[in-house]
Design a protein around this nucleic acid. Structure first.
Length: 233
DNA sequence: AATGAATGCAACCGCAGCAGA
DNA sequence: TTCTGCTGCGGTTGCATTCAT
């Protein structure tokens, strides 16, 4: 039997819209099923990943704030590489995002250490912010969700922020309802073969989420100055 | 201005855990 | 109880962009 070939690589705008549409219809579970009924030539896994890491309107965009960075460091020392756990404490951030951030951070740290060591070759290895993190990561303590939440609030307060997330006004996130309304209004999505297929979609969505809904066919353009709600946790 | 290196991020892969048959 | 399929997680890779020379 010839199995239908799965698409891989970057998602196109049309695929995104299609996925959002079907997630609205069937919910963000049953990804295999969703992948099939949507007609997307993607695996359920791939659909889930795209949704979780990118399309989910609850996601924040843009650079991590210093408060978030601080929190990541603290949480990593508590949980180790359990990124999903850490992400759970950072509303609007994904495990992938945090993982990437951490890698970058550790890399920088390593480079700094290297520089230091080349400058002062005789100095013993310093205890970096992270030196104790990995050691404590192996055995995560028993967890009580309410105390964990309090921990996070504390950490953010320590970092100089009193609210979990109301912060950065630039970090706007669309409400799912708004997006879905628009998707609904484009009823025959599956038949929209006239949409241009973008060669790459990864580009500016990161920094300009409204572009997700903007195409040369401004059918998908959302005016972000209208009704979109900010993410308030 | 050109180009090579560094960085950031999206996406894939493999595995483990869980739930339902 | 065992099997099977699905979901979620962590690690890794590859590509696009940015930076430095």
């Amino acid at each position: 039997m010839v199995q239908e070939e799965m698409r891989k690589g970057p998602w196109t705008e049309q695929e995104d819209v299609q996925l959002v549409f079907y997630v609205k219809m069937f919910g963000d579970r049953r990804w295999d099923f969703l992948a099939k009924v949507s007609g997307l030539k993607r695996s359920g896994k791939s659909c889930r990943l795209r949704w979780v890491n990118y399309l989910n309107p609850a996601l924040k965009r843009g650079k991590m704030t210093p408060q978030e960075e601080h929190l990541v460091l603290q949480l990593h020392s508590k949980y180790g590489n359990r990124w999903s756990k850490i992400a759970g404490k950072l509303p609007g951030r994904t495990d992938n995002e945090i993982k990437n951030y951490w890698r970058t951070h550790v890399r920088k740290q390593a480079q700094d250490e290297k520089k230091k060591n080349t400058n002062k070759a005789s100095i013993s290895p310093s205890s970096s912010n992270f030196s104790n993190c990995s050691s404590s990561s192996a055995n995560s303590p028993a967890e009580d969700s309410s105390t964990e939440r309090n921990d996070c609030v504390e950490l953010l307060q320590v970092a100089g922020e009193n609210k979990i997330y109301e912060g950065d006004q630039n970090m706007m996130v669309y409400s799912m309802d708004e997006i879905w309304k628009e998707v609904e209004s484009t009823e025959e999505i599956k038949t929209r073969n006239d949409l241009p297929v973008m060669a790459s979609t990864t580009w500016d969505y990161n920094y300009c989420p409204d572009l997700l809904w903007m195409s040369t066919h401004d059918h998908y353009y959302f005016d972000n100055h209208q009704d979109f709600s900010f993410f308030t946790g």
